[in-house]
Amino acid sequence: MTVLKAKQLGLTIGRSRILQDVSLTVEPGELVALLGPNGAGKSSLLKTLAGELAFGQGSIELFGREIRQWKGAELARQRAVMPQRVDVSFPFTTREIVALGCSGLTTPQCNEMIDYLLQRLGIGELAERLVPTLSGGEQQRVQLARVLAQLWSTSGPRLLLLDECTSALDPAQQQTVFSLLRELAKEQGYSVVAVVHDLNVASCYADRLVMMAAGRIVEDGSATTILEPGLLDKVFGLKARVLALPEGYPMVIPQA
């Protein structure tokens, strides 16, 4: 079953057209990276797919059902969303925040899962710390753990919508996170749609790259077809060489 099927989406806010004729399909086990310059509409597309923004034209189907037909609590068991930025307004501990994703689990089960997730994300020692006192990168991983916890005990198709989930992380931490995401996609059948800024991260981990510009999808395909000097120049204005690595994916090298 197709996890996500968006057809000819159009979104207008005020007088500005944010999205035009956007169609996107995501299958189970696929990790899709959304690319594009700032203002291309990546975050807006993600929010629209998350049901946060009401779209004017087109349709969105999640797990074979129209998005408006889903009940919030039902959908929350199969689809989790990580916004670009989450501010925790009160002194909650890491454990309390991640536990918000727990549903249908006993407290010991929930705690076990939280400890495992924090461990995997490299913040195992932060479980009892107050989230507002953590660094930006730590907080980002706490949120990621919460999002993963939300779908952890679900079986069947699951969808993660992630908006720049590693923007505050160093390269090693970024690697940890995307390795985990790819593992979840390959071994558990998660579908992941992630807005990614780093072209090489996208190239390395994603199954498919979707390039956006000015509210439209410009190209949708494998890393080799998308990461092409001509397209990069046209979309980003980026002068770069693209190197085919022996690992099987291309690498973008900006020119000085």
């Binding site: 998350a50 946060e52 609590a73 929350a76 969303v81 916004p83 925790v88 009160f90 949120q143």
Partner: peptide
Amino acid sequence: ALGESVAGHLGF
């Protein structure tokens, strides 16, 4: 505490 939209995504 995580914001209105996150609460919505969590199914509330």
